[in-house]
Simulated scan of single mutants.
Amino acid sequence: MDITVSGEGSVLVAPDTLRLHAGVEVRRASAGEAFAAVRAAAARLGEALRQAGIAPEDLSTAELFLGPEYESYPKVSAYRAAQGLQVVVRDLGRGDHVIDTVAGVGEEARLHGVSFEVAEPGEALAEARVKAFRQAAAKAAQYAELAGRPLGRVVEVQEVVGAPPVPMRQMAAETLTAQSDASISPGRQSLTVHVRLGYEFA
């Protein structure tokens, strides 16, 4: 392999899926009471989300915690239990309603943030791939010309795809409820392909 070059191609797309990181948290005098209370609160949250139109397969447990809190070690002041839930909202128009549903579960509700995704990125990635390859190929042709050598065939192709989620600042459920007049906004997301090409001289 005589020449190695890299290229990058990006395409802006509008996200169509919301991923909500929610959950419930309680504190009780004993571990058993805390665990029972958090499981009951999680069941209420799950049922409320299903009633809000979220399909069961779009709900998944993301965290389960039980542990002591100390007033001054080793004296335990309370036991904290938490259960996280990841919620996939496939209709962005219902995003605010789903967030309000979480907040409406009660004081146990927690919202840890949201991210936006593209459910079917294949077409956009194909376009980004073309851009990345053409950029890398143009570099290879330039280097071959500078070296005074004819450019030969491609002998290696490596690809890295990157599409970082678009996060929303973390808020407590109460804060999001107070700001319910402000709709969430997904903006646009850049889907990027990085490609590395290896060429031989002819």
Rank of each mutant, 00 (worst) to 15 (best):
M1I: 13
M1Q: 07
M1Y: 12
I3E: 04
I3K: 04
V5P: 07
S6L: 05
G7I: 12
G9E: 06
S10H: 08
L12T: 12
V13P: 01
D16C: 02
D16M: 06
R19A: 02
L20R: 02
H21L: 08
G23C: 02
V24H: 00
V24Y: 00
E25K: 04
V26W: 00
R28D: 00
R28A: 00
A31D: 15
G32I: 08
F35N: 07
F35G: 03
A36W: 00
A37H: 00
A37P: 08
V38I: 05
R39N: 06
R39F: 02
R39W: 02
R39V: 08
A40R: 01
L45C: 05
L45I: 14
G46M: 03
G46S: 03
E47M: 05
E47W: 06
A48W: 08
R50A: 11
R50F: 02
Q51Y: 01
Q51R: 10
A55F: 00
E57W: 09
E57I: 11
D58N: 15
D58I: 07
L59N: 05
L59V: 08
T61N: 03
T61H: 03
E63R: 10
L66C: 10
E71T: 12
E71C: 00
E71S: 13
S72K: 13
Y73M: 03
Y73V: 10
P74D: 07
S77F: 06
A78P: 04
Y79K: 00
Y79T: 05
R80I: 12
G84D: 03
G84V: 02
L85Q: 05
D91M: 04
D91T: 14
D91N: 12
D91E: 12
G93W: 05
R94F: 07
G95C: 06
G95R: 09
H97F: 13
V98H: 02
V98L: 03
A103W: 08
G104M: 09
V105N: 01
L111Q: 01
V114S: 08
V114R: 10
V114G: 07
S115F: 03
F116D: 10
V118L: 11
G122R: 14
G122T: 12
E123S: 06
E127V: 15
R134D: 14
Q135P: 08
A137S: 10
A137Y: 13
A137C: 01
A138S: 09
Q142V: 08
Y143K: 11
A144S: 13
E145T: 15
A147R: 15
R149D: 07
R149I: 10
R153W: 08
V154W: 05
Q158C: 02
V161R: 06
P167W: 06
P167V: 09
P167A: 06
M168D: 12
R169V: 15
M171N: 04
A173H: 06
E174A: 15
L176W: 14
T177H: 10
A178K: 11
D181V: 15
S183G: 09
I184T: 13
S185R: 15
L191G: 01
L191P: 04
V195D: 00
G198S: 03
G198I: 11
E200N: 09
A202T: 14
A202V: 14
